[in-house]
Each structure stands twice: as C-alpha cells, then as structure tokens.
Write a protein that binds this DNA or RNA. Sequence first.
DNA 1: ACCTGAACACCGTTCAAGT
DNA 2: ACCTGAACACCGTTCAAGT
Lengths: 204, 204
Amino acid sequence: MHDDPEQTPAKRGRPRSLTEDQVVDAAVQLAKSVRLENVTMRALAQALGVPVMTIYNYVPNKDALNERVVDAVLRPVAVPAPEAGTWEERLKQLERDARRALAEFPGLSLDRPYSAEGRRLAEGVMSILGDAGFRPTDASLAFATLFTFMVGQIDLDLEVAELRGPGADAVLSAARAAELSPDEIFEFGFDAVIEGLKAKLGPA
Amino acid sequence: MHDDPEQTPAKRGRPRSLTEDQVVDAAVQLAKSVRLENVTMRALAQALGVPVMTIYNYVPNKDALNERVVDAVLRPVAVPAPEAGTWEERLKQLERDARRALAEFPGLSLDRPYSAEGRRLAEGVMSILGDAGFRPTDASLAFATLFTFMVGQIDLDLEVAELRGPGADAVLSAARAAELSPDEIFEFGFDAVIEGLKAKLGPA
DNA sequence: ACCTGAACACCGTTCAAGT
DNA sequence: ACCTGAACACCGTTCAAGT
C-alpha cells in the first residue's frame, strides 16, 4: 500500500533536463526552414543545447519524432461542426486550414504513415460526407478524390515556393504567365473537384 | 585538318567499361524494389560489378542519375494525338499511361525537379487543353488541377501498395471496406475532375 | 584518358559506462 | 534512473594516384 511509485514520483536519480514537448517543438521550428527529412538529430540536439544522445531519452527514434512533428502541425486544424455551414463550405474550410498549416513546413505531407491527427482529419472529412448524405461507397470514393487533390496541392505549393527564379518549368511557367497565385489555383481546383463530385453523385 | 579528335575517336587510353545507358538501366531496375531515393551508389555499383567511383565517370552525381531514371521511366508515355479521341479521352489516356508507368516504381513522383520528359508531358497536356478550346488562363488552371490530381493519385497508389496489412489506416480502411481498387478510385476521381472542369469552364 | 582506392564529412543509432 | 561519449555501420562525394 505504501511507497506507491505512481503516487510518489520520488525525485531519485538524475533530473530530466528536457521535456518531450521541448524536443518536438524544437524539431517543429527547424522544420520551418529545412525539409523534415533533412532535420538531423545532431542539428536538433544543438538547437536544444544538449548532446545528441539525450534526445533518445524522449523519443525512441527519428521516425517517431517525425510523426510527432506532423501531429503537432496538424493539431490546430479543426473539423468544422455541422453548424459551420453547408458540407461544401465545411470541407473547403477544413482543406484550406490543413493546407495553410502545412504551408509553413516545406515537404511536410499528409502521407504515410498516418499520424493520429491525420486520422482525426480523415474521419472528419468522412463524417462531413456522411452529413452530406453520401452513402458509404460514394463517401469513400469522394474521400479518396479529395485526399488525392489535397496531397497534390501541397506538393504543388512546395514547388511554387522552391522554384522561384531560374527553374524554367513548364508547369509553373504556364501558371506564372497567367499570373495565378497558389491560392487561386487551390480555390479553382477545389471548386472543380466539389462540382465534379456533386455531378457524379447527385443523380443517384 | 588531320587528326580531328571528333572524326577519329582514337582508342587511346583505357576503354570505357560501361555505357551511360547501362548505368541508368541498372538504376531503373533497382528502383523497382527500393524507393529511388534509397538506391545507393554502392548498391548500384555492386549490381553493375564495378567499383563505386566508376559510376561517376558516367553520371556527375546522384541527383543527375535520379533525373535520368525518371526520364527513362516517363519516356514510353505517349501524348495521344488529336485523332486519338475527344480531349477528355486523350487526357485520360495520357494520365492513365503515366500512372501505370510510375506504378512499378515505388516513390517515383512527377514532382521537382522537372525532367525533360516531365516537361514533354506537361506540354502535351497543355496542348490537349488548347485543342479543347480553353483559353490560356483557363488552360493553366485546368492544367494545375489535373497535375495536382495526378501527383496525389500516385501518392495514394504508393500507400495502397505499401500499407498492406496491419496499418490501421482510416483512409484506406474506408476504401477497403467498400472494396474499391486503386483503378476504380482513379477512374472515379479523374472523371469527377474532368466533370468539374467542364462545369467551371463550359459556361464561359 | 579513363579508372578507382583511400579518405572525408556526413548520417542515425547501439552500447556500455558515467553520475 | 537518467544521461552521454565513443563507436559502428552506413551515406555521397573529393582527391590523388594508378594504368
């Protein structure tokens, strides 16, 4: 009964010099200027002012760290409630928020392996599609289309951000010639996708 | 006049042990089972039966090698001629071919930096959109939407291929529950995008 | 001329020793 | 109990020497 290690943390041993949040936050900051995959454990340790191996007391390895960074970035993205508007408006707001959240982080994508936050957003989209009245199979197809569009859009955003200047690139030069901003491209594409989904699913 | 080094290759010095095509082809083969970024120069050298540094006689560095691999994979993808069908059919065939070509290669994407073949395909899509009667700004918007969809689709294909089994993934579990194949998802999504583009651009 | 061994400047991570 | 230096098994690539 007495001496329960859960109740009495018993500050024995060396005190922790960091918290997990500090480690993840520092990695998030570094991921703003360098692609997440290129954030090195050594650079992270230096930013935290600790030896490299100390990080491994807070995070099992780099993959796990990356997952927590993605979670931290996606956490602020809300799933709009039913009262927030029509299903089209709710989806658009969700995808716009996600895109904005990810835009600060070069090369941070929604893809594999799915984080807890990624799953939350995926379920949010599915539930909005359910509210819209789509039956399960149709909702899955619509989800896949929206997800596909979203991943591609983030990739396009990255290219626009990186390829400033000399990169004589057919894709972007066409967009540049027409003076299209990434936001305009997103709005147009998203509306087209929604329109297409309604056309394909509406008559059922 | 005499002794022109261009006309008379003059087999002096050590003979080349490889050709550039051999190097690229070997890299293409390795990229079928390992993501291109994870194909190491050392593994490539071993597959070719030469010391690592020999590769640098044929290719300046790994980035350039990767670009040539992407070009080699994309080269067989044709831009359907005007006689091949309606602009919708031509676009669909092009994107389906590109998707199939890339499907064999895990993690091979259309994105940055654009290869010569990628540029050829991009210009092909733009010309098909021109044939369809889209004016330049509209064609750019439509192109960006199609490109976005394509990049996302390839990413989705990769995840479907990789996440066999335990990965309890919301995105794919929904698709699996509905027994949707990647091809069905592609067909549906592509048609929806085309439908949306027509709806947005048609009334103009 | 072309080839290539040795070496360098990086990675992530294991392992055993330190307090 | 928590921390961490040294070392290991990798990378891509430079550089100088070999034929």
